Simulated scan of single mutants.
Amino acid sequence: MLVGYARVSTTDQDLTIQLEAFKAAGCDKVFSEKVSGTTAQRAQLQQCLDFVREGDVLLVTRLDRFARSAKDLHNMLDALSGKGVGFRCVEQSGIDTTTSMGRLVLGILGNVAEFETALRSERQREGIDAAKQRGAYKGSKARIDPTRVRAMLSEGNSPTEVANALGINRASVYRLSG
């Protein structure tokens, strides 16, 4: 059975192109969702992974619609492989775990995608550091007043009472009490 998984990150994006690609590929069942986030936060993805059985092939249009990191990708592919399920990208035709060449291409592209994510993160960090040097980036406003935490503790309040009163995590109270 061919099973499709379609995803867009925001509700204003459209699933139509992905759904049409799955129809053209002959998918028997399609799971779709409009959600951003980790694989654990995507209910339809979890249902799709639970649904597929030995001999099935899971189709996605592109890798970025399926996994957010090489680790996620490899973990999900290992789980699919363990169930005897193949994996194929419709728009990235070289990616097909039912062939040895497809598995090689998949590994390379997954690592390239992770490399690009790391580069974006480095550029963002460099931009923040440069903005801090210019005095244009101050970070977020402090949410916890350490003086108030210490005062409440010295008045005999327990760390749990202080945390509840201030709406903060108890670990923050312990960290600031020293």
Score class of each variant (00 low, 15 high):
Leu2Met: 03
Leu2Ala: 03
Arg7Asp: 09
Arg7Ile: 06
Asp12Asn: 15
Asp14Pro: 07
Thr16Tyr: 02
Thr16Ala: 09
Thr16Cys: 11
Gln18Ala: 01
Leu19Pro: 05
Leu19Met: 08
Glu20Val: 04
Ala21Tyr: 01
Lys23Asn: 06
Ala24Glu: 00
Ala25Pro: 08
Gly26Cys: 09
Asp28Pro: 02
Asp28Tyr: 00
Val35Arg: 00
Val35Ile: 11
Ser36Pro: 09
Thr38Lys: 11
Thr38Ala: 12
Thr38Asp: 04
Ala40Val: 00
Ala43Gln: 10
Leu49Gly: 13
Leu49Thr: 11
Leu49Cys: 14
Val52Tyr: 04
Val52Lys: 00
Arg53Ile: 02
Asp56Lys: 06
Asp56Gly: 07
Val57Ile: 06
Thr61Pro: 04
Arg62Thr: 06
Phe66Arg: 01
Phe66Pro: 07
Arg68Cys: 09
Leu73Cys: 14
His74Tyr: 13
Asn75Leu: 13
Leu77Met: 05
Leu80Met: 09
Ser81Asp: 06
Lys83Gln: 04
Lys83Ser: 09
Gly84Trp: 02
Phe87Glu: 03
Arg88Trp: 00
Arg88Cys: 07
Arg88Met: 04
Val90Leu: 07
Val90Glu: 02
Val90Ile: 03
Glu91Gln: 15
Glu91Arg: 15
Gln92Met: 03
Gln92Thr: 05
Thr98Ala: 15
Met101Gly: 15
Gly102Ile: 01
Leu104Thr: 13
Leu109Ala: 12
Gly110Tyr: 01
Phe115Glu: 12
Glu116Arg: 11
Thr117His: 15
Ala118Gly: 12
Arg120Met: 07
Glu122Tyr: 03
Glu122Arg: 08
Glu126Gln: 05
Ala130Asn: 04
Ala131Cys: 07
Tyr137Gln: 14
Gly139Thr: 12
Ser140Asp: 08
Lys141Asp: 14
Ala142Thr: 15
Arg143Gly: 12
Arg143Met: 08
Ile144Gly: 12
Asp145Thr: 14
Val149Gly: 10
Val149His: 10
Val149Asn: 11
Arg150Ala: 07
Ala151Glu: 01
Met152Val: 00
Leu153Gly: 12
Glu155Asp: 08
Gly156Phe: 02
Asn157Lys: 12
Pro159Ala: 13
Pro159Phe: 09
Thr160Phe: 00
Val162Ser: 11
Val162Ala: 13
Asn164Tyr: 05
Ala165Tyr: 06
Leu166Cys: 14
Leu166Lys: 08
Gly167Met: 09
Gly167Ala: 05
Asn169Glu: 03
Asn169Gln: 07
Ala171His: 14
Ser177Val: 04
